[in-house]
Design a binder for these strands. Structure first.
Length: 242
DNA sequence: CGTTCGATTTGCT
DNA sequence: GCAAATCGAACGC
């Protein structure tokens, strides 16, 4: 079981060292488990312990926004230095938060899919839907952005220095317990890239995402031509975790 | 409980 | 035009 009790940082503790992020996304993603995402608002401090991540491996990764060398204003920050925030807007209403890794010009990033709320729960609840349970506050990439007030305005922020949003190493004494691996969630038909186990999650945590559990290739089968109001996707999948 | 469906806008083909 | 690194409510059983 993950340690839930809060421990104090040493006075003046530093944010996560940038060198930790200057590696490929599949090496960084598991290392971000247990690190803390900190959001400083006026008068409020929101903190979540990262419990689920996904690696996106840049231009060769069919599931990545930078696949094939596609470089656009939207994903520009992914080409920046390690420690840069990449925040994008999708599905017409949700934001997703990523930690850029590797080096300048190498568009790799780690999507933070879920955090365990640790500080500022009241403010998080206020931003989420009415009556949201604690475990529903940040258990998904779109949810945590809503709860922690993360949007495109934070795209490009430096996560390795204290500011409106940044990362801290795991709290002293915090241990994740077993970390499970599984395939990434919500991808379209991306061939073999859809089955690679590029997602990491705290096995025993109740704060991980439920996941859309869509199978690879599922999206391609939806949306018949000229059938605007019938679009839908979903579909069972045993689901990962333990 | 599990599955279906609408929302809503951008970015790129 | 269309698909999207999603979410929550509405169904059906």
């Amino acid at each position: 079981m993950p340690t839930r009790e809060r421990r104090r940082d040493a006075p003046g503790a530093d944010p996560l060292a940038r060198r930790v992020l200057e590696e490929s996304a599949d090496r960084v993603a598991p290392r971000l488990i247990g690190c803390r995402l900190v959001r400083e608002l006026e008068g409020v401090r929101l903190v979540g312990v990262i419990v689920e991540t996904e690696a996106y491996l840049g231009e060769r990764d069919r599931a990545a926004h930078a696949f094939g060398g596609r470089r656009t204003p939207r994903n520009e920050s992914m080409y920046g230095p390690a420690g840069t925030a990449y925040v994008y807007f999708t599905y017409g209403m949700h934001h997703c938060f990523n930690v850029v890794c590797a080096g300048v010009g190498i568009p790799q990033a780690v999507l933070v899919r879920a955090v365990m709320p640790a500080e500022g729960l009241e403010a998080m609840r206020a931003r989420r839907f009415r009556g949201a349970a604690d475990r529903a506050l940040c258990s998904g990439p779109g949810k945590l952005c809503q709860a922690m007030a993360i949007d495109r305005a934070l795209d490009g922020a430096d996560l390795c220095v204290r500011g409106p949003v940044y990362l801290m190493p795991p709290a002293p004494g915090w241990t994740p317990g077993r970390v499970a691996r599984d395939r990434r969630i919500g991808l379209g038909d991306v061939g073999a890239w859809g089955t690679r186990r590029l997602r990491w999650l705290v096995a025993a945590s109740e704060f991980v995402s439920v996941g859309v559990r869509r199978r690879p290739g599922e999206i391609a089968k939806r949306n018949g031509p000229a059938r605007r109001r019938r679009a839908c996707d979903a579909g069972g999948d045993g689901g990962p975790d333990a």
